[in-house]
């Protein structure tokens, strides 16, 4: 049933169903990314989970792939879909030690 709905929505909208696929998860507990580097396919999404006790502010300043999640409260998650191949550095604007690379492949 679930798959049917997903399939129908994809057909209807002609879009990827990013949030419905089993995204790779990236966690932020203890002011540390759970992975230093993650590889995904073009068009796939990562789910950034703030499982820490304080807000984070994930963003990328990588040219062409800029994004900013703004203040992400503890106990929330956000999907980010990467549509172009390349190496994209994701950082927390608040916490300078938090850096990771998203490697997006064709």
């Amino acid at each position: 049933m679930h798959k049917t709905i997903t399939f129908a929505l994809v057909i209807l909208t002609g879009l990827s169903a990013g949030a419905l696929a089993a995204n790779q998860m990236v966690y932020q507990k203890g002011r540390v990314f759970s992975s230093e580097s993650v590889s995904i396919k073009k068009g796939d999404a990562l789910t950034f989970v703030n499982d820490d006790s304080i807000p984070h502010n994930l963003m990328s300043a990588t040219k062409g792939s800029e994004f900013n999640l703004g203040s992400q409260a503890p106990g929330t998650s956000t999907d980010v879909t990467f549509k172009e191949a390349g190496d994209i550095q994701v950082i927390c604007a608040i916490h300078p030690r938090m850096k990771m690379m998203v490697k997006v492949t064709d």
Partner: peptide, 25 residues
């Protein structure tokens, strides 16, 4: 919006940010 299931996003840019959801920790 995809209702209770969550959200998917579309966009013309290289990176698309979806809605933020509550998660049970």
């Amino acid at each position: 919006s995809l209702g209770a299931v969550g959200f998917a996003s579309i966009g013309l840019g290289a990176v698309v940010v979806g809605e933020t959801r509550r998660v049970d920790l």
